[in-house]
Computed example of a mutant assay.
Amino acid sequence: MTLLVSLRRLSDGVNHLAVVLCVACILAMLGISFTAFLYKLLTGSTLSWTYSLARLFLPWIGFLSMTISLRYGEHVAMTLLVRSLPRPLVQLAAGACLAVMALFAAMLVWYGWGFFQNATQIYMVSDRIQIPSQVTAIVVPLSGLIMLLHLVHGFALLEHFIDDEATIHDLIETPDSETPR
């Protein structure tokens, strides 16, 4: 097995872990919000800490979602413009796109690590719940590392090389018994 194949498998595994973590963060936010709703409904008073605690999950959801969307090619792309170019220029544009993504990911790692190291405040959720700001700051360099790892998939991350006509033809020609349910 080559190094590239191993890195692609690692990228897929890390992406699966990011999806699970993202879903867990969303469920935790919903659980906290639902607890606050039930408490308000049953007692008439509010829990002061629920909004602040639920808000701590947003950076994790946002940054991990960014890495997941990159892996599935759901990032911002100028596909129509690129597809109108001749094939050699499409390859050049795709290479430039990957280089810009790599630069952005490297900057997330570089500046995100400094941000993480300088995050020395304690986030006061309530008088008893205190969370270091590094808990949310670590997601910045971590997402940059995940994006750099996903770049081992190369041009597969981009929509520039998808042949729409062939995909549509394959879907039309597939018998109903072979379609996934």
Rank of each mutant, 00 (worst) to 15 (best):
T50L: 00
F115E: 11
L108A: 03
L42V: 12
L64T: 04
L58Q: 04
T67L: 01
S52A: 12
A77V: 05
G95M: 13
L41P: 01
T79H: 08
R71G: 00
L80H: 12
R71V: 01
L38S: 14
F63W: 06
W49Q: 05
A94M: 07
V82D: 01
L103T: 07
L85H: 09
P59R: 02
S65P: 06
L41H: 09
V100H: 02
T79R: 12
T35N: 11
Q91P: 01
R55I: 02
A96C: 13
T35D: 11
V109F: 15
M101T: 06
L103H: 02
L42H: 10
G44H: 11
C97I: 05
A93L: 10
R87G: 02
A96I: 15
T46H: 13
G112P: 00
A96E: 03
A36Y: 01
G62I: 10
L41N: 06
A106L: 14
L98R: 14
P88G: 04
F57I: 01
L108N: 14
W110V: 07
R71S: 00
Y72R: 13
Y51M: 07
F57G: 06
L98N: 07
L70Y: 01
R71M: 02
L92Y: 08
T43G: 13
T35Q: 09
L56R: 05
A106G: 08
F37L: 15
F37G: 13
S84W: 10
L41Y: 13
L92F: 12
P59G: 01
L81E: 09
F104A: 07
F116Y: 15
A93N: 04
L92Q: 08
L108C: 08
W113V: 11
A93Q: 09
M101A: 11
M66G: 15
A94P: 00
R71C: 00
L38W: 15
S52L: 08
K40R: 14
L47D: 04
F115R: 11
S33A: 15
G73A: 12
L89H: 03
A77L: 03
R55S: 03
L58N: 03
L70W: 03
F57S: 06
P88M: 05
A99L: 14
A102F: 07
A36P: 05
W60D: 00
F116D: 06
W113F: 14
A54Y: 05
S48E: 12
L108G: 00
L53T: 02
T43L: 10
A93K: 02
L47C: 08
Y39Q: 12
L103I: 07
L70M: 14
W113T: 13
M78E: 07
G62R: 00
M66D: 05
